[in-house]
Simulated assay, not measured.
Amino acid sequence: MTSNKSADSYNGADHEKFSWSQSINDIDVIVKIPCGLKCLDDLKIHVSMRGIKVESCTRNFRTGDGESDWCVIFQGELSYEIKSTESIWTFVPGKYVHIHLEKLSERWWESLTTDETKISLDKIDCSRDIDDLDPQEQMTLQELMWREHEKNLRRLEKVTEQ
């Protein structure tokens, strides 16, 4: 496992079979799939409040009975609960499945799954986008930025007068 600043593992971690990244409100999981997996019908995604499971189909063509076997590509119990009804995923044939999860509560996760090595929360970027703040907090921040701008203009005027 490596923790780095790439988009797939920003504030998260990069593993052999998957990577994850997070903001204070959500998590993005990239699960690598077999390069031969091109059809959406050959994929099952299960997301619950506490778990994720990604399965791929391996068709048994030798027997000719049309039966399919399913193998688990990724499975894990989540470290914390998510809003499972708010989860969405995207399939990129032969490459990966991108699963977007909304956290149940605002918090930074030390790991995506309970059995994963924890990352150090001291080393993540805890800054928040202004759009993540509630309207009152956004107004307060904009007011502080305006005051700072005005203060800098006054300083500049004083310097040019001298």
Score class of each variant (00 low, 15 high):
27 I>V: 15
59 R>W: 09
41 D>Q: 14
56 S>I: 15
43 L>W: 00
81 E>F: 10
132 D>K: 08
100 H>D: 03
112 L>K: 00
98 H>K: 15
118 K>W: 07
23 S>P: 01
84 S>T: 11
109 W>P: 00
92 V>E: 13
119 I>Y: 01
85 T>H: 12
113 T>R: 05
56 S>Y: 12
19 S>Y: 00
55 E>H: 03
44 K>Y: 01
73 I>W: 00
55 E>D: 12
52 I>D: 00
78 L>E: 01
132 D>T: 10
101 L>V: 02
51 G>L: 07
88 I>E: 14
137 E>A: 13
46 H>V: 15
44 K>P: 00
86 E>Y: 13
75 Q>A: 12
99 I>H: 02
105 S>D: 12
133 L>K: 09
106 E>H: 08
138 Q>G: 04
116 E>G: 02
109 W>D: 01
138 Q>E: 06
116 E>P: 00
124 I>G: 02
83 K>D: 09
65 D>Y: 10
122 D>E: 15
48 S>D: 09
131 D>T: 13
138 Q>Y: 06
80 Y>A: 14
126 C>V: 15
50 R>S: 09
65 D>A: 07
100 H>Q: 12
30 I>D: 03
57 C>A: 14
109 W>N: 05
72 V>M: 06
37 L>A: 08
65 D>Q: 11
56 S>C: 13
52 I>H: 03
110 E>Q: 14
106 E>M: 07
89 W>L: 03
79 S>A: 08
75 Q>K: 15
117 T>C: 07
90 T>C: 09
104 L>S: 12
102 E>S: 11
102 E>H: 11
60 N>V: 05
51 G>H: 09
28 D>Q: 13
136 Q>E: 13
131 D>S: 08
26 D>C: 07
72 V>Y: 07
38 K>N: 09
79 S>Q: 14
99 I>M: 02
86 E>H: 14
41 D>I: 05
